[in-house]
Design a protein around this nucleic acid. Structure first.
Lengths: 161, 161, 161, 161
DNA sequence: TTTT
DNA sequence: TTTT
């Protein structure tokens, strides 16, 4: 027998901006899942260098359940947030039979760091915000909606805790 | 003009075990880079469930320069370590022209959490550790060595700070 | 007017050992609060140096509500845990009228890093564990009990969220 | 004998504002040490409640060596920064013979989150910035200077790593 | 003693 | 007052 000493840690803390409006979908059993990508500028990147080097990391984020719905209803492209969560690496088989890996942050906590109005004021996002355009509808589908398309393809086993 | 307020954060803190001995290579300009994969058990995974669900995340780690050499000379499959660093997402073009993404942790600090002897004692790896066997040489190439194979393919632009 | 941009962060992540059994008390309104001290060894301290330099930091921890009760029922002197929380600085007036400061970590999450039996086996605590002794009762007061002594002195305003 | 398994962690991550200009002093052997207090607003504090409850934690920060000098030369009351470091608890004997405890964060990394001009522009500090006033000299003593007063009282044993 |  |  003996002492079980299985210590582990898996924590990510990020601050960045959404590259797009978030997407909310639902699993077969109706659990909400929200996904988006966070752009986190690299600390010492020279954005003016034009040397082809990336100036940011684009990190996929996943939120589940209540947090997913709050994100879907409040986040919007360009908004700055902090995310605390764990790094998850999933694998799947590609069409050509090869194994592919997906790395994403499963969010435990998300904090909104600038007000929605400030994002708009700063002109953080363009499309559809032009003069004469109809009022934008930043809030994504807030319940079932088009859950049909992608939702059912999310297996319930993916749901954490 | 106005106030520049470009705050960002990108921090990962991990504790897990090496899935293999680390690899050390060198860039064209001779900078050491060490790579390995960290297995971090998932908190609520039931390892006995046999339900096909993963029980760990396998997270690629990269260390550079002095830290790379320390890792190459001291780490070994099965050893438990902590890693603190940042999440980096790189993209490259696959042979079929599609874009692929690689996510890895660029290590700032690594700490060795169990002594080398303890890993051996726990039977973390077998080959060559038997009585009467020649002294194992777990230390990978500690300087140029076979840098030729992969090393030169690491572009110097990848080197952080 | 303008953009409100009030970002803050206050996070502590600790791993150490309890210097004593935890204490559980109750506020006037019956909310559980558990306190104990965590000994966190200093990384580069030479424990053998005998130079009078401290080799550890002794950090006060506070847990509230359900977490307080779980701690009271499961923790014990010598046990190794991780604590995640925020740093809180309180002040109070001493008998001599001077202002004193108390710094403590308000725990959000606590994880038990070695099993209770392992602590016992390692001889972490002696009393009552001898052969033939009556079953030890490490669980402190699990509800009101002697809340009278210290409990009522905890003002309800101290309770977080 | 046996496996030594002495794992510890002691990490603090803070974002807040300086309550005053920082102070730089020097130890007997000439090592720079910078101290200041960080005000970190409490997340759910109601600043308008006027209920006597604190709305922020005031956390003492210490930086050493090069970092101390950078802080002394660049920080200023009201500036927003992030601090990463470890929690240190020191004790000393008060004049009345009782033991007192000081908790502070020993900084490993500090990041400046708003530009100096932005702090000024926001009216973060008034005195001496009026028209016709002589150029302000926010930079504290940048080398030995009045090290005499407090400096010599900092024992060299306090210096970390 | 406290920042915005 | 301190843990291993």
């Amino acid at each position: 027998m003996g002492v079980r000493e299985a210590y582990l840690m898996n924590k990510a803390i990020l601050i960045g901006r959404l590259t797009r409006d978030p997407e909310v979908r639902y699993t077969q059993s109706g659990v909400a899942v929200c996904t988006f990508t966070l752009a986190v500028d690299r600390r010492f990147a020279r954005r003016d260098a034009n040397d082809g080097q990336p100036t940011a990391d684009f990190i996929p984020i996943v939120a589940w359940r209540k947090l997913a719905e709050i994100c879907g209803n409040n986040l919007i492209k360009g908004r700055r947030i902090s995310v605390e969560g764990r790094i998850q690496v999933r694998s799947y088989e590609a069409q050509d039979g090869s194994k592919r890996y997906v790395t994403e942050i499963v969010a435990d906590e998300i904090e909104f760091l600038d007000s929605r109005s400030s994002v708009q004021h700063e002109g953080g996002f363009g499309a559809g915000a032009g003069a004469g355009a109809p009022a934008p509808q930043p809030q994504p589908q807030s319940k079932p909606a088009d859950a049909g398309s992608f939702g059912p393809s999310i297996p319930d086993e993916e749901i954490p805790f």
